[in-house]
Every structure is written in structure tokens, then in C-alpha cells.
Amino acid sequence: MLKVENLYKNFGNIAAVAGISFEVKRGEVFGLLGPNGAGKSTTISIISTLLPPSRGQIFFEGESIFENSRNLRQKLGIVPQDIALYPTLTGYENLRFWGNLYGLKGAELKKRINEVAEIIGLKERLKDKVEKYSGGMKRRLNIGAALLHKPDLLIMDEPTVGIDPQSRSHILETVLKLNAQGMTIIYTTHYMEEAEELCSRICIMDEGKIIASGTKQELVELVKERTRINIKLDNISDNMPQVFKEITGVLDAAILDDTVTLFGENGDILLAEIISKVLEEKSKIQSIDIHKPDLEAVFLHLTGKALRD
């Protein structure tokens, strides 16, 4: 459905996207996973024709989007990372405007607004001005505005940033329902759990490049039976990851806030040595979590960094 070939985007001397290629198949939820600044949003901006690439090509249904963007724009729904709504208008007025932009009008538009309001769970609040909505409600309306014209391809750029767990759960359910109805979705996130839950295939991006791609199982294969251990500490020092790397069997370590993430073989056996190192460093353990191989471990394995850095 969508093919990205050797895509580059430079801002001055900075390469935001550095030669990425991938393909999105019809009917799948395709994930772009990576930390902030990995180049996900820039990639999305180029796909949605908002930004021109420095180099490379993108084909939608076999046609270059840079030669004919109209077909793509008519069939594309985009949920931007920022809330892109008019706060002084009501939810209904916002949906009506965005529906109008995609050529919907009259009874058809009204019907779609009702259907979309049902999907996003805002039917009772459409008469209120958006400025009165909670953050989660705004996020849901932001998604609704992209669904009115029943797009073939829906791009969701970090749609759950900064919202309450209930709204997040609602959004994730909505994504799965839309996909079950046949909608193709590109979902960008830096939340590993979301990518794991939603995406049939995932591209992991870092510093403008794709560092790994495949299904979740294929990606996890990269780290085999290796374990990820998260240790929450008091009095954490910057050299803590280096200290842990000295333990035989620890392959990587990274620090994020008050947590050190370790990646190693046979986590159960490593635990005793880890605790001993913590005591040597005169730090206190708040909690320890041992995880089975997952995307966080893959990212740590490939980049030496925690995913949410």
C-alpha cells in the first residue's frame, strides 16, 4: 500500500531522517517505535506531504506521492502528535469543519459525525467547546477528526502522549477496532508496550535510521533468551551503568531517571551480583523487575540506550 524508499531529510547539517526504507501492507498496524528525536514525526510529515524530503521516494498505491499527492490526501487520515483543533469551537463544529475539508456535507456528514462520536466516546459532549474538554477528550476528538472520511490509511503520531490511563486504554481499543474493520494504520510511539500490543510489524528508529524491523517475535529473536532487569534506586550516580557492566553476563546498561535498565543473560543468576554491586555503591534498591525478552531489551541491545531517553 505504501512504500518508502531510501528517504532522507536534512535540516541544515542535522540529518533528521537518514536513508530509511520500509513498506506498509494493506490491513496491518505498522509501528514506528523509537525515542523522542528518532525521526518518527519527520518521517510522518514527509509521508503526509507536509514536508518535502531531501532525497528518496514514497509510493502510495504504486504512485509517487510527490508527483500526485491528491490521491493520498483524499485517502489519508492523520492524527497529529499535537492537538490540532479549534478550542473556541464546539466538538461538533470541529468535526463538521474537518469533514467539510474532505468533501463531506449534508446528511452524510451528520451521519459520519454521529458514527465517529460513538467511536471516540464523545457523543454526549459534542455541544461543548473544545477548550472545556480534558486532555484525554481532546486527544480522542483529535483522532475523530481524522476518521470522518473513512480513510484507507490512518497515520497516528504518538496519539497517547500526556493522557490519563483510561483515555489511553480507550484510544488503544479504538485503534484495534479500526484495524479490525480493515483500516491500515501507521502508529508511531515511544511506548514499547503500545507497539507490542497494537502493531503487527514494527520498525525501530534511532537517530534518523531504522535499526531493526519485523514482527514482534522476529525482533525479540534478536535478543534470544536474554533478560531485561529494571532496578529503581535511591542515590543513583551517573556511573552506575558502568558499574553494572563490570558484572560478567551483563551485556548492556543504561540509566533513565532513577532507574537503571540492565540487559543480560540469565537474569536470575545475575541478581545476586547486582545486589552486591548496589550495596558496594552505597545505594538503596527501591524495586527490581525482571522482564522476559521484549522490545525495550531489543532497543537497549541495539543502541545501548533506554527507549525513553
Binding site: 507536509l50 491528491r70 483524499q74 492523520i78 497529529p80 499535537d82 490540532a84 479549534y86 474532505y102 477528526a145
Partner: peptide
């Protein structure tokens, strides 16, 4: 400011 400008630009209009 409302980020609706970019959203309009990627619409068919």
C-alpha cells in the same frame, strides 16, 4: 498556534 494549519495543508484542500 492551534496546529490546525498543518492539518489543513495535508487535507485535499
Amino acid at each position: 498556534r492551534y496546529k490546525t494549519w498543518d492539518r489543513m495543508l495535508v487535507s485535499p484542500v
